[in-house]
């Protein structure tokens, strides 16, 4: 299978690889996928409590090149956005940006899930109701 140049670039030079302290109150962690499915993504965000802006994002992914690229791109995109804005990122945007073929669409879905899971974790920690973010949209 031929990979798009953007997938190859993210695979060779993944952005924002690493870990944040998951016990910190301003950090949200999303762990999605399963080893037996061949994809596990962990996406972490550090949110400014005043502005709700995602100031830092880190990821680690076990998965194919497209899964690595999708999560790497996701960290780039959420950085600098508010939590509400980050929730607007759709998997189809990732598919488009990385030119993913149909068999790799699940990688983009997983990346979207990872963003949502990280935000949801952060909200839980900070007592922000799920509905509030929806209202903010």
């Amino acid at each position: 299978m031929a990979y798009s140049d953007k997938v190859v670039d993210h695979y060779n030079n993944p952005r924002n690889v690493g870990s944040l302290d998951k016990s910190a109150s301003e950090v949200g962690t999303g762990l999605v996928g399963a080893p037996e499915c061949g994809d596990v993504m962990r996406l972490q965000i550090r949110v400014n409590p005043e502005t709700q802006v995602i100031e830092e994002a880190k990821f680690k992914t076990f998965g194919c090149g497209s899964a690595i690229a999708s999560s790497s791109l996701a960290t780039e995109w959420v950085k600098g956005k508010t939590v509400a804005e980050a929730l607007e990122i759709k998997n189809t945007d990732i598919v488009k940006e990385l030119a993913l073929p149909p068999v790799k669409i699940h990688c983009s879905v997983l990346a979207e899930d990872a963003i949502r899971a990280a935000i949801s974790d952060w909200k839980k920690k900070n007592g922000v109701a799920e509905t509030e973010a929806v209202a903010a949209q």
Partner: peptide, 21 residues
């Protein structure tokens, strides 16, 4: 890049985690 490798190195038992298939 692997979250699984990091978890195993930290002594986490991967089989005990509830993965969302």
């Amino acid at each position: 890049l692997s979250p699984l490798y990091e978890m195993v190195k930290e002594g986490i038992d991967l089989s005990k985690i509830e993965w969302a298939a």
